[in-house]
Amino acid sequence: MSLYVTELRRLFKRRLTRLLLVLLILGLGGIAVVFSFSSHKLSPAVIAEAQAEADVQYQRALGDWRQAVTECDAAKARGENTEQRYGPDCGREWQPQPEMFDPKWNLPYQFDFRNEFGIFVAVFAGATALFAFLVGASFVGAEWSTGGMMNLLLWRPKRLTVLATKLAALLTTLLGVSLALGALWTVAFWLIAKNRGTTAKVTAGVWQSSALDGVRALGLILAVGAAAFALASLGRHTAMALGAAVGLGVISEIAIRIGVAMAGVRFGDRWVLSTYALAWFQKQWTLLDHRSCDFSQGQCSPKELIITWQDSALVFGVGTALVLVAAFWMMRRRDIT
């Protein structure tokens, strides 16, 4: 327990942890504040104003149309060719109709908690996962590169216990930070919706769905933190995790994408990591195979491959588990020089 408490203290004593935490809070807070200004509550007065504006637009269009028809008739009387400019019958058939001027077009943007909060859960997960990556990698990477790990092992010569305790301290910190900030994030967007948007149709089912989005976001944050920790421990440097992340991104998003396209692999995007990230956030992601279509037969519904969030859980879970096992195996075997 003392080692765990010490590692928690060490994590929060680190300047980078504090700095990144402040940046994360400021960043998320900034997004919420800026977004709150872009949302406007649709009060009856605002709706009436939009309706009036739509009416004015309709009347203006109707006036323009009438004037055009009058001008056309006059020109026709002078024997001019009007068809090219005004259309047949002086464009009488194009008379504007009231339903062509939807008052909704004149309404300002209103945040709809029920339909749009999921996007902001993904934004929160992305920002916090970046925080988890940097803190996780530097927490153990800096310990290795500055000799702190060696010092610690002179005091606690149980390598696996030391590494596991550090990981536990990191993950519980990430869990705590994610839960605390996630709760504030939810409250902030609920208040924005309440005061400057709408919370209509937010049923228990919607809350349940949002909670599941949150759990998936939490899973991603913890997995990213653990993977960064394991990679930095394997390479004994923070840069190892950063390099691996960049390398994985280049290989997955560029090399594999080009490779499967050249090889003509069906549903090639199933081999690309971002597909699984999208499926993770959106519950499922559908890949289409347009080459299965024979357009000579008319319209075509291409074959589909659905990637579910469970598939993503398998890919990311196995990947994270593999680097963690490698890090612990290496910790057990390596000479610390």
Partner: peptide
């Protein structure tokens, strides 16, 4: 070899 950003007291307290 010590973590350069910590003070001597912090370093020893953590150990």
């Amino acid at each position: 070899q010590f973590f350069p950003q910590f003070s001597a007291r912090d370093t020893l307290a953590l150990l």
